[in-house]
Design a protein around this nucleic acid. Structure first.
Length: 808
RNA sequence: GGGCAAGUGGCGGAAUUGGUAUACGCGCUAGUCUUAGGAACUAGUUCUUCACGGAUUGAGGGUUCGAGUCCCUCCUUGCCCACCA
């Protein structure tokens, strides 16, 4: 190694990342080498990182991990000759910007633009290969125009379950032509994929606003600790439940993590069972039966009671009769702790009849039956169901031994239907807030709703004097006279609206006549590789899949699924193994790391830390390792350069050529498989091999060295380009062809294999490729002859290239 | 309570999927060069033992010539969902 050092000293040069990083970042933009070309003859490859919500806090070292991985992948694909689309943008509607606006009395847009600026500066110095010409921002009018457009399409379509796809609502209008306008509106609303309805919200009287679930802690507002109650509120919903089956079946066609698929399937929660009506007897009113859903119809003989929720029709349609019960149930808490205690009230003078044995079954109003699943009623089988048993023991309901029966015979006897039920609920698509897309609908005085025409889009957010929700719990839009007078909807869209289709917009970011043009969607089709956090599994990812399927139905997209493959990154934790947060004071800023060690060392370290999908603690100490690596590559480059200038004919040793070919294979496969940490480590091993050769005064052909630099390029694009030019190459190494390996050169002359006796390692042996099995075994015997003395060999196992094992 | 992961040196982790455990990096120890070094380089570094040797992948058991890897029981940690009938 002494030789290496001397040469460096003569040059007096160390790698100066501060100069070189910025130089190449500028060059790349100037030469537009990362620009994706729609319609190119090259094969397309759409690599996407989940776009960020630009918060005021900026990036910490955990955020870029996914971006860097996506970038490494995109750079590999580009070098492999693909036409790569790798864009970036911002998801900027939502609560934090609005809070900031309220506190600082500025327009939320100002906060958003300020934060985006910070983000962009931080992203820039990492050296990511984005095509910035396609940048989007969900709060731009040119963008949210199309979010509103999609909403209108949802409003104007229904789901035809026979055809298995969405169809125009106009097809249904004929059915209701005999009705009055108001009745017709009401009927159609039951079919629209975007529909108006009511749902319970967390209402805080003192704050005069609706709160999200995570803003409520133990029945009190997080801010101020004021009481929070449930209240019904007018909302908009999207009928995602109509797509439940396709959202499940589509999972079979995509390359996602199996555990993630399971989470989505469980979230959708499809279960198979039966519906059954129990006749009521006694002092019954309007309601004559209680309908239940069960997945265990085979346990019917064990039913000893019925349990219904406090919102069941039987109660709500007999308010006078059950007024006492209604008052009592109101005091039942809804917190986790309250729900652990089973509560119930028996209905007097009224009971259900068992369909088989005609026994009288008591009916209880309980807190453990959900009102919005099944029919808000269950048959109680204490003998079989733990929860029913739990309840029965508290209220002394008798238990009956269950004789399990074949579902088919019960179906036949009672004439039951098989049905499917889903856990997933229709998605609430309205927020009583200012900073979101206005919902493009008009309410007439008589209650009739008129959707805006496409020409009227975008419906722009009006200026308001205050961003606080108004005291009625409605959004600030309800406080604007002209807005209300015009009849515009005062709810805005939720934060996930803009993010449910943004990946389509990148394909054709400046299209004025459609969300995405025909030519662009036909070429790009779908995202080939999507990278982001696992926390979006049941939110963004499910909603995007839903929207995409709808857009497919109406002919806008050309694939059923938006994302062909998905990879999740693990979280970067603080060095105290806790989530990085200001609260714990363990936040590490990428800017400082990059400033000290350079973008390449930072990028490599992020990838080297550990497996991409596992959560790992950050330790800035370790980054010195990848920085040393960068320095050593730099020194090696100057040595190789001098060697090649001195000698015209240079041949790299066979052993090193073999190592290079091995590494080409390994790095290519590892990046494809998102095993970045082992890819980096194999680059380090190869560098060690190069240095060994230098130490042995062996020469290295610069062509072979450049192959190594190419392997390095996806991880460390700056130094790679700098070395590339030092060796008098033109353009950028980032668009140079990826090296290919030669399988025949990987095979080494000799292999060391282990010798085992009864499974214990007792020695090893150097074997050349031309030796036969018998020769190897005989040689092995002599090596371990001490261990074999006086023993009879019962069996010999030989695994080529791995092991010789003697059983004695 | 349910589901899903995962337990390997002082630390982050690797192991061709049943075949030489601890690659690579950090840290640490010693040395070289240096006015100096918290720089760079060289050598060493799982534990135990002066050594020969022995032990070792959360614990215990099993299958196998051979187990970090497969099976069973238990323990621990992390994440997600939580009364979905």
């Amino acid at each position: 190694m002494a030789q290496v050092k001397t040469m460096i000293d003569q040059d007096g040069q160390f790698y100066n990342h501060k100069k070189i990083d910025g130089k190449w970042q500028k060059n790349w933009i100037k030469d537009e080498i990362y620009k994706a070309v729609t319609g190119s003859k090259k094969e397309k490859m759409y690599v996407l990182s989940m776009f960020p919500y630009p918060s005021g806090a900026g990036l910490h070292v955990g955020h870029p991990r996914g971006y860097i991985a996506a970038d490494v992948y995109a750079r590999l694909k580009r070098m492999q000759g693909y036409n790569v689309l790798h864009p970036m943008g911002y998801d900027a509607f939502g609560l934090p910007a609005e809070q900031y606006a309220i506190q600082n009395h500025v327009h939320p847009r100002e906060a958003v633009l300020k934060n985006i600026k910070t983000y962009e500066k931080q992203l820039e110095i990492i050296g990511l290969s984005y095509d910035w010409s396609r940048k989007i921002n969900t709060t731009d009018e040119d963008y949210y125009k199309w979010t509103q457009w999609i909403f209108l399409k949802l409003y104007n379509h229904y789901y035809d379950h026979k055809a298995g796809k969405a169809k125009p609502i106009s097809e249904l209008e004929g059915q209701f032509s005999h009705l009055s306008q108001a009745d017709k509106d009401r009927e159609l609303m039951k079919y629209r994929l975007a529909y108006e309805g009511f749902s319970e919200v967390n209402w805080c009287e003192d704050l005069g606003t609706v709160l999200a679930n995570d803003e409520v802690i133990e029945g009190k507002s997080e801010r101020g600790g004021y009481p929070v109650v449930k209240r019904m509120m007018r909302q908009w919903f999207l009928r995602i439940t109509d797509y439940a089956d396709r959202l499940i079946s589509g999972l079979d066609t995509v390359d996602f993590d199996e555990s993630l698929k399971t989470v989505q399937k469980n979230w959708i929660g499809k279960s198979f069972g039966h519906e059954l009506s129990f006749k009521l007897q006694g002092e019954i009113g309007e309601v004559e039966t209680i309908k239940i859903f069960t997945t265990r119809i085979d346990t019917l003989s064990g039913v000893t009671f019925l349990a219904i929720s406090k919102d069941h029709d039987l109660i709500t349609k007999n308010v006078d009769k059950f007024s006492k019960i209604i008052i009592q149930t109101k005091s039942w808490g809804t917190d986790e702790k309250d729900l652990k205690i089973k509560r119930g009230i028996i209905l007097d003078d009224i009971y259900a009849v068992h369909p088989d044995n005609k026994s009288k079954l008591p009916i209880y109003v309980t807190n453990y039956v959900l009102s919005d699943y099944g029919f808000g009623a269950v048959m109680g089988v204490p003998d079989q169901d733990e929860r029913d048993a739990d309840f029965a023991s508290v209220y002394n309901v008798p238990t009956k031994e269950t004789k399990l029966e074949k579902p088919e015979s019960i179906e036949k006897r009672l004439g039951l239907k098989k049905v499917f039920k889903y856990k997933i609920r229709d998605a609430v698509f309205a927020r009583q807030r200012y900073w979101g897309e206005p919902i493009p609908l008009k309410h007439d005085k008589d209650g009739h709703i008129t959707p805006l025409s496409e020409k009227e889009l975008p419906l722009k957010l009006p200026k308001v004097s205050s961003y606080e929700p108004i005291g009625s719990g409605e959004s600030p839009l309800a406080g604007i006279k002209s807005w209300v007078k015009a009849g515009y909807e005062t709810n805005t869209m939720p934060g996930w609206a803009g993010s449910s289709w943004y990946f389509l917009r990148y394909m054709d970011a400046h299209n004025k006549t459609a969300p995405v043009g025909k030519k662009a969607i036909d070429y790009w089709k779908q995202v080939d590789m999507y990278i982001g956090g696992r926390e979006h599994t049941t939110g963004h990812l499910l909603y995007s899949r839903f929207w995409h399927k709808f857009l497919y139905d109406i002919g806008l997209t050309v694939t059923e699924e938006p994302f062909k493959a998905l990879r999740n990154q693990g979280m970067i934790l603080g060095d105290d193994n806790q989530k990085m947060s200001k609260r714990w004071g363990n936040v590490v800023n990428p800017d400082d790391c990059i400033n000290t060690y350079g973008a390449d060392a930072f990028r490599m370290y992020e990838m080297f830390l550990g497996p991409f999908d596992s959560s790992l603690p950050w330790s800035t100490d370790g980054i010195i390792g990848t920085r040393r690596f960068i320095d050593r590559v730099w020194r090696l480059a100057s040595v190789v350069k001098i060697q090649n200038e001195k000698n015209k004919k240079i041949q790299t040793s066979e052993k090193l050529v073999s190592e290079i070919n091995k590494t080409i294979k390994k790095v290519t496969e590892d990046i494809d498989g998102f095993a970045f940490n082992t890819a980096v480590s194999s680059l380090m091993i190869l560098l060690n091999n190069f240095e060994d050769m230098i130490q042995k005064k062996e020469n290295i052909d610069q062509k072979d060295f450049i192959d190594f630099v190419k392997l390095l390029t996806p991880f460390a694009p700056h130094i790679s380009d700098e070395i590339w030019t030092i060796f008098k190459n033109k353009k950028s190494i980032n668009v140079a062809p990826w090296p290919k390996y030669d399988e025949s050169k990987i095979v080494e002359g000799t292999v060391k294999i282990g010798i085992q006796i009864n499974g214990k390692l007792r020695g090893d042996i150097e074997v050349s490729a031309d030796k036969t099995e018998n020769e190897i075994i005989d040689e092995a015997k002599t090596i371990v002859k001490n261990h074999l003395e006086g023993k009879v060999i019962k069996k010999i196992i030989y695994i080529k290239g791995k092991i010789v094992s003697f059983v004695v």
